[in-house]
Computed example of a mutant assay.
Amino acid sequence: MNEVSALEQAVAALRAGGVIACPTEAVWGLGCDPDDDQALARLLRLKARDPAKGVILVAASIDQFAPWLEGLPVELHAPLAASWPGPATWLVPDNGRARPLVRGDHDRVALRVSDHPLVVALCEAFGGPVVSTSANRAGEPPAMSAEQVRAVFGDELDAVLDGPLGGLARPSTIRDLVTGRVLRS
């Protein structure tokens, strides 16, 4: 299957409420439409992930996060603009836009503008951000290849967008936008 049709298949799966896998900057990720509660619940079930933890949203550009950034004080936009695109995930105060399963038990939503070409292409083709959480069952190491994703999840996924990882040694830094506190370095 060529890359264009694989991308189209992944986008169609997202739009149909499916769960997909694709490479990210450091590990393989699982994704779904962040506005589809059934897809979110299914993704969390597949991972056996505690819904209280929340998930990260990735986008192709800061503009795709406009609805999530609405009402954010202007001075808090500078760190986002300075670090995106790239491996910086920011915990941004939720303005009410994030679904409960995206946010988890938190008053923040985790956002990252990716510089991984496949993630960017996926978000552009989908027309907005997608959920991105490591492709693994809770407590297990994340998948590092399409083969590992298929070995863990078999036919439970609706699409696998194959491609190389982004070359980073570890997942993105997670930092609270308001306090500056680093939660994952």
Rank of each mutant, 00 (worst) to 15 (best):
N2V: 07
E3Q: 15
E3M: 15
L7W: 13
E8Q: 15
E8P: 01
E8R: 14
Q9W: 10
Q9V: 10
Q9K: 14
V11Y: 07
A13F: 12
L14Y: 09
A16R: 12
G17S: 09
G18H: 07
V19W: 09
A21C: 13
A21K: 07
C22S: 11
C22I: 06
T24L: 14
A26V: 02
A26F: 15
A26H: 08
G29H: 05
G29V: 04
L30M: 05
G31Q: 06
G31N: 10
D33A: 12
D33M: 03
D33I: 03
P34I: 02
D35E: 13
Q38C: 12
L40E: 10
A41Q: 11
L46Q: 04
K47W: 01
A48G: 14
A48R: 08
D50H: 04
P51I: 00
G54E: 01
I56L: 11
L57V: 15
L57S: 10
L57N: 09
A60W: 04
S61D: 12
I62R: 13
D63S: 12
Q64N: 08
F65L: 15
A66K: 12
A66F: 15
W68Q: 05
G71F: 10
L72W: 04
V74A: 15
P79K: 09
P79D: 09
P79R: 02
P79A: 06
L80D: 06
W84E: 06
G86W: 05
A88C: 04
A88V: 02
A88G: 01
T89P: 08
D94V: 08
N95K: 11
N95C: 14
G96W: 03
R97C: 10
A98F: 05
A98V: 04
L101V: 12
L101Q: 06
L101W: 07
L101C: 11
V102F: 00
G104C: 01
G104L: 02
G104D: 03
V109R: 02
V109P: 01
V113A: 09
S114D: 07
S114V: 14
S114A: 13
S114P: 03
D115Y: 03
L118Q: 09
A121K: 12
A121M: 10
C123H: 09
E124A: 08
A125M: 03
F126C: 07
G127P: 11
G127L: 07
P129H: 12
V131M: 15
S134H: 02
N136M: 03
G139E: 02
E140W: 02
P141Q: 04
P142R: 09
P142S: 11
A143M: 06
A143P: 13
M144P: 01
S145M: 15
A146V: 12
E147R: 14
Q148M: 15
R150C: 15
V152M: 08
V152A: 11
E156W: 05
E156H: 12
L157W: 13
L157G: 10
L157P: 10
A159D: 02
V160P: 04
G163I: 13
G166I: 03
A169N: 08
T173L: 12
T173G: 00
T173K: 05
I174Y: 00
I174G: 00
I174S: 00
R175Y: 00
L177R: 00
V178A: 10
T179E: 07
T179N: 10
G180I: 03
G180S: 06
R181W: 00
R181P: 00
L183R: 05
L183D: 01
L183V: 05
R184V: 03
